[in-house]
Every structure is written in C-alpha cells, then in structure tokens.
Design a protein around this nucleic acid. Sequence first.
DNA 1: CATGAATGAGATTTCATTCAT
DNA 2: TATGAATGAAATCTCATTCAT
Lengths: 191, 191, 191, 191
Amino acid sequence: MSPKSKQQNELIKVGRKHEISATALKLFAENGFQHTTISAIAKEAGIAKGLLYNYYDSKEALIKEIIISELHQFTNLFDSNNDGILTAEEFEFFIKNTIATLKKNPEHWKLYFAAFLQKDVLQILRHELEAKLMPQYLILIDYYRRKGETNPEAAALLLTATLDGISLNYIHAPDAYPLEALGELILQKFK
Amino acid sequence: MSPKSKQQNELIKVGRKHEISATALKLFAENGFQHTTISAIAKEAGIAKGLLYNYYDSKEALIKEIIISELHQFTNLFDSNNDGILTAEEFEFFIKNTIATLKKNPEHWKLYFAAFLQKDVLQILRHELEAKLMPQYLILIDYYRRKGETNPEAAALLLTATLDGISLNYIHAPDAYPLEALGELILQKFK
Amino acid sequence: MSPKSKQQNELIKVGRKHEISATALKLFAENGFQHTTISAIAKEAGIAKGLLYNYYDSKEALIKEIIISELHQFTNLFDSNNDGILTAEEFEFFIKNTIATLKKNPEHWKLYFAAFLQKDVLQILRHELEAKLMPQYLILIDYYRRKGETNPEAAALLLTATLDGISLNYIHAPDAYPLEALGELILQKFK
Amino acid sequence: MSPKSKQQNELIKVGRKHEISATALKLFAENGFQHTTISAIAKEAGIAKGLLYNYYDSKEALIKEIIISELHQFTNLFDSNNDGILTAEEFEFFIKNTIATLKKNPEHWKLYFAAFLQKDVLQILRHELEAKLMPQYLILIDYYRRKGETNPEAAALLLTATLDGISLNYIHAPDAYPLEALGELILQKFK
DNA sequence: CATGAATGAGATTTCATTCAT
DNA sequence: TATGAATGAAATCTCATTCAT
C-alpha cells in the first residue's frame, strides 16, 4: 500500500549503482572499453538498458565514473602515516607490498593503466593524484639523498618508473611473469 | 602523357601508404582510437575514403600496421651490428638511442602504450611482438649472463620494464621529465 | 487519525488535478510539447510520476484536457446572459473581455495556437470545439443579420479570424503590441 | 573507371537534399513534427537512414532548415518594388493576391504558422522577417494616414492581424472556408 | 493514495565498408 | 587508380508507462 521508504530506495539505488559499475568494470576488463556496449552491460547486470541511464547520464559518464573511482582506490594505496623517514627495512616492505598488491588484482591495474592513457580522465584526477603521490616521492628522494646518491630525484623517478613498467608488463602475462624475482632484483639495485 | 611506369606507381603507392599511416597516427594520438574515424583520416590525408581501402583492408588492419611499424623502428635500434653479441658499448648506444627516440616523438609512444592495453589489438600482435622482441631479449640475457648476473633473465626483464616505465611516465609530462638524467642512471645501474 | 472523508478526498483530488494541469501548461509553454516530459511535470508539481497517471490516463490525455479547459474558459466569455441574443452592449463586452483575457496570460494562448497546428490534437477536439463554438457563431451571425449585413456568415467569420490574428500577433511580442487600440478599432469596424 | 565529376556529385547532392526536404515537408504536413520520424522520412524518400545524416546534422537541424527555408520563401512574397504609395487599386490587388496565394498551397502555410510558434526558429529569422515586412507595414500606415484614419498604425496592424487570422482559419478547413467572400468583406471594411 | 525504480519499444545517431562511376 | 554517395548494422539514448511495495 504505502510506497517504499526513502531508506529502502536509497539502499536499492546504491546497490544497483554498484552492481552496474561492477558489471561494467568486469566487461571492460574482459573486452576492452571499445567493445563493451551498454546493452551488454545491462544484459550482464540483468537489467533493462533504460535503467542504466537512471544511474549514469551516458556511456561516457559511466566509463569515467568507474575509472575515476578506480583511481581513487588506487591513490588510497599510497596514503601513509609514517614519520617521513624511510628506513631500509621500510623500503623493502614498500617494494614487497607493491608487488603483493599487483598480484592480487591484475585486472584492476589494467584499468588503472588504461585510465592513465585517457587524456580527459587523467586531467580530472591529476591534482588529487599529485597530492597523494608527492609525499611518497619526497620521502623517496630523501631516502636516496641520505644514501648519498648524486641525483636523488632521478633515482626516485627511476624506481617509480621501474615499478610502473613491471606492473605494465605483469598485467599482460600474469602467469609467466617472475614478479618475485624482479622484486628481489629491485631490492638489490634500488635499495 | 605516357602511362606511369610500374616503378613510378610503386613509389606513389609506398608514399601514399606512409602518408595515410602518418596521418592516422597523428589523429589517433590526438583523439584516441575510438574518436578517430576513417573519414577523418582520409580527409586529413587528402584522399577519398574508398582509396584508403586500397591500402589497408580495414580500420583494424590500419591500426595494427601502424603499431607494428612503430615497433619495427624500435627493435632496429638494438644490437646495431647484428652479430648477436651485445657489447657494453652497444648497450650504451641502445639506451641512449631509446631515449632519443622517445624524445623525438612522444605521441607515437603514447599510441603504442594505448594499443598495448587494448586487449584485442595486443592479442593479434602478441606473436609478432614476441618474434621481434625475443631475439633481443635473448641477447640481453646473454649479456647479463656474461656479466655474471645471478638471474640474467630477471635482469633482462627488469631493464625492459624500466624502459617501459620511463616511457610511460615521460609521455605524460614530456616537458618536465629529466630523461637524460634517467638515462645516465640506467647505465649506472643496468650496464 | 480518522480517515479522510469522501468530500475531503474529492477536494484534494480536484486541487491536485488543477495543480498538475497548471504545471503542465507552464512547462508546455516554456519548452514546447515535445520537450516537456512527464517526469518534468511530476517533479515540478512535486508529485511522483505514478500519481499523475491516477489523474490522467496518458500524456496525450493530459494535453487534451488542458486545451479543452482553456477553450472552455474562453467560450464562457461569450454571450454573458445566455439569452441567445447578442446586444451591442454585450458585443462590446465580449471584445473587451477577449482582449483582457489575452493580456492576462499570453502563454496560455500560445499553447492554444500551437495545439491548433498539431493535426492529431485538433482532430480529436474538432467536434468538441465545433459544439462549443457553433452556438456562439450562430449568435454572431444573428447579430450581423439583425444589423442588416449582406453576408452575415462572412462577417462572423471575419471577426473570428481577426480576433485569432490579433491573438497570434500579440503573443509574439506582448510588450509592444497596442492591444487596446486594436480593440477600439474592432468596435468601430465590427460592432 | 574514373570517379564522378564534381559537377555530377554536386547535382546528386543538391537533388538528394531537395528530395529529403520535400519528403520531410510532406510528412510533417501529414503527421505533424512530433510524429514524423527520421526512419519514416528515409523510407518515404527511398534512402537509408544514414544517408540523411550526410545532408543534415540531426533531426532538429533538418526540421529547422526546412522551416527556415519555407519562411525564406514566405518573406519573399512580400518583396515589392513599387513606389511606396499604395493606391486603392493596389490595395485591392494586394488583398486578392494574398488570398490567391493562400489558396494555392495551404500545407505550406500551415508550416509557416507552426514555424511562427517555434521559439528558436523564429529567433533566427526575426530580423530578416522584420526587414521584409516593415516596408509593407509603413506603406500601409501611410495609406491609412492619407485616408484620414485617427490611428493609422492600429489600422495597419488590424489588417495584418485579420489576414493572419483568416489564413490560420483557412488552413484548418480549406474546403468549407469562404475565402473569396471574406476577401470582399475585407475590401469593404479595410480599403 | 503514493512512490519511483524498472521496463522496453522505439527513436536518433554513428561509421566502417561498399560500389557504381 | 580514385571518388564519395550510399548502405545498414549496430550503437546510444529517451521516455511514456507500469507495478511492486
């Protein structure tokens, strides 16, 4: 008799939205952005096409929201509450942790990288990303300075680039890639 | 008024084909795969749409040929005297040349990386890619083995990953990125 | 906590219905039929979409009811004492009242004219319209016959057409249009 | 062997465009804007839907271009090359000519009126329309001034409105409407 | 009576590809 | 070889209407 309560509706909406984005994410990872249609997403999510537009204004908006939300999660990985001084021990932990994270969900990382190459998406998040990553970067520079590196900035950038490159290569052929061995080697060369 | 000779026609054909791929590359880099239409490529190249199909069987084929050709240019940098043995000198030359190539046309590389993340594109290129890169990979492994590395395979992969990572980072902010300094550092750590 | 009486419910219903039609009228006038959605009407009226369908069977029905009701208001202006005989005094009153009505809400009339040009809307209203307007048309003819006009039918049609034309012109530029002066002139020429 | 010449293509294009707009015009008149779909226009014109978009950017653009082009034709009816003095004889000719024009193509006039009620379309042509109609209006005012009317501006506006109103009424029921009789009456009352 | 999430038919639009010339 | 009008399949998007609650 009576309509659904506001809380009920809110629950439904949040659930649906998450359902849609999860489905879309899955299909993007499976088939790529280009070949993932709204129809396919709706079908896979078990809803009518039209409903999707109750939650996202357009396909473009859907893709962007998903990527942005993924990148948000990504940037949160780098939130640290340490004292600003990186010890050799912490360095080792950082590297191993990065590798473990990578191993846990390669598909997500593929999306991150795809996102990095989407000009407009990146634009939106650039400031946020920089704000998140800058402290880490500064700590790394300090680490290398204390170690007596001639060009600590370059050293920090090199480590970052190496980790990016490993990630990129790993997500392409997760099964065959010797992540751990590379982790060891990084510690040898970069610690 | 005499008909063009076969050689002349061949020349025109090769030139035309290059013109098309260069135009396509430019537009892909500017607007992304998705938003670059065959019409736009033909218009920008100053030819009719139909003619494009005399040179490339499909849009897919066009994209793939461009990427392969990019890759070709890159792989040719390696092991300049082709004797299968990489000397320290050649190694240095390879690194420096890679960096110079990167600097010369970041847009090309952006395309390359974007393609790398397009599942289907990669799938078809994988064999070709492997065939191209494998010899060089083997040469690198051999290089590190001769240098006495414990895990020469990992060392080769790490170098590759680092170069990829640098490329990826560089194409995002070409102006501020200290490519040369990183090149020096690579030589220090990886030669 | 006692349930609402039948009369109360009836009052709410009538009020609600009027609220909806007023809102719809406003939005139709602002954005045109085509670009006014049921959702927008419901939102603007502060009710749920579903409730609107308790009052009107369809969007078409809503539009038609609005137009008919507009027309109703208009036709009631005519032949104020309903005796079937139009006096010169009543004629003057009719003209002045028409002009006053026009001035009061140009948007209503814009809708009315727009509707007039929508084939299907008109089709359905034609009978109803004729039934409403015919008596008044006959009264006008009678008026002109008594005045000794050679072609009283044409005279009646001409007056009708003139009033329509004035309305049409007025709603386009209400501010600059000398409605009153035209009213005077009509009385001079048509009374 | 050789492609179509530029002139040939130009001919095809102009012909097609005219074909499309004529078909659209016909269907608009038959079914109204609202109920005329791009599919229906394409089908009736015997072409693929897609082709329509080679000639018009969108349905909206198609509709507007047609209306604007119709209105252009309409404004051209009012191009006069007379001496600025309207004689009683010329007045009579003007009225009769207007009525004859109306009779020749009621469907077009219906579109004109529909156009007048499309806010944005009118906006585009307002200046042009005013420029075309103003001279006529001034000549009419002068005509009534010379005749000793107290308010010649109002008299001119009233005539204009009356003609508009007649047109509006006529296009609704062309068969039964006594156009000629009304023409005579106008001459009686307005000359 | 009241809600608004959900439907689904149908509209518009895009664009790689073909083909008559 | 070269053209670009034309195709048509498939995509995105809209919105009046329904219905479980």
